[in-house]
Design a protein around this nucleic acid. Structure first.
Lengths: 231, 231
DNA sequence: AATCTACGTCAAGATTTTGTCAAGAAAATT
DNA sequence: AATTTTCTTGACAAAATCTTGACGTAGATT
């Protein structure tokens, strides 16, 4: 990435716009890749790790906002949203979902390019997200893209909160994650005293993931501090 | 910054807008600071290191673009530009000068706040760096990020107080740390006579960390003064 | 040798923190 | 509207940690 041309992935279902973006981007010295729907986009990011994502909000399969949120669970790739809708609440929602910028159609090419440069500037300094979207510990395999957990081939169903907690622990794999952080990330600020929630959910995760939940090998308690994922 | 409120500096010469921003920002849980011209703004950033800069382009002394460029020579504090001019070339120029975002007046409060959150998100991730946090003495390895102690590869479990004491000793590695300081840092003021606590916990640390706890190689007693970590 | 002082050792409660279970409320799905 | 799933909450058990006191040790002082 440092020396070669930055790779930009455009996720856009309308062919004319995609063509136009391709022309413009290639013209200005970027490597171009395209996806016509959300699922394709997610998989592309997982496998090819582009330097920037240009994402249309109105996709045929998954909503652009959902794509953004799912991506943010394991990737820090800069995201610029393109949308026909210019309502303030649309922008706020997109930005709060994890997007880095939001442009309303029609937009100027020069501005788009400038905002791309800004986003790439950020991307350089950012730490990439999780190294691999498939994370393995013990007999457990987690696929962050498919959102699928398996244990010895058997699929394990996790509730949204269980899944969220697990992904946080994976993101900090090996490190101790404080009660505070887990609570804030999962329930939001204002729940930082509810450590009882953590006890209940860690118990459930252990029951689902650990061979012997009374003597966990991976979901480790650090009394007084938090929890830790050991692989 | 991690725990306290983010500090936002507003550089804006028009009093009504400044007042309005102050109200809005304080209302939404930010620390607010202000400067009425570019020179003041630059000096403030240099001395107080705000987490974010909101910068009006039309300043009485230095041009906002110039402020941005000068700032970028020694700081990467996120900058959001506010401007009455919405021409594309103005935006491009500002963004290419080093600004992170550009809003045209009049702007919506909700959008501004959302873009502030984006910028702060970037700022956070920039600083989280590579700090070498592994400290080694003898056969003991301490990783202060993972909060993990190993002895010859074996994981050693420390209780919160044990860990706290050890980190204090590491922070002052080689030097003598007084009873007083250890007690104050660990139990808080008001426990500075309870030196017995230290004896109990230093004994426990030695039992866990030293090869022969009766003849410690690293956790050294300085009679009458305190303790010292020798590596 | 006796005494004193500062520190080390050990272990028994007391206290705090964590784990477990289950029932009812809330939310999502059908 | 009914059903299923998920979340929240409380009571209680279990475990880990902290506090406390009794006693031991070593060296210095008399």
């Amino acid at each position: 990435m440092a020396e070669s041309k930055p790779l930009i992935l455009v996720v856009e279902d309308e062919t004319p716009i995609r063509r136009f973006l391709k022309m413009t981007l290639v013209d200005h010295g970027f490597d171009f890749a395209e996806a016509v729907n959300g699922k394709e986009g997610l998989m592309f990011v997982a496998s090819r790790r582009p330097d920037l994502l240009i994402l249309d909000l109105g996709l045929p399969d998954i909503d652009g906002l959902t794509v953004t949120r799912e991506l943010r669970e394991w990737s820090n790739v800069p995201i610029i949203i393109l949308s026909a809708r210019g309502q303030e609440k649309d922008k706020v929602e997109a930005l709060d979902s994890g997007a880095d910028d939001y442009l309303t159609k029609p937009f100027g090419i020069a501005e788009l390019l400038a905002r791309i440069r800004v986003a790439l500037r950020h991307g350089e300094k950012l730490t990439q997200g999780i190294a691999d979207t498939v994370f393995v510990f013990g007999e457990i395999t987690t696929d962050l893209v498919k959102r699928q957990i398996t244990r010895g081939g058997e699929e394990i169903h996790l509730t949204p909160i269980e899944y969220k907690l697990l992904t946080i622990l994976i993101k900090h794999s090996g490190k101790v994650v404080t009660h505070n952080l887990l609570l804030k990330e999962t329930w939001g600020a204002g729940y930082q005293q509810e450590t009882h929630y953590l006890r209940v959910y860690m118990a459930q995760l252990r029951r689902k993931l650990e061979r012997d939940s009374a003597h966990p090998m991976h979901l480790i308690t650090e009394p007084g501090i938090g929890y830790r994922l050991r692989s």
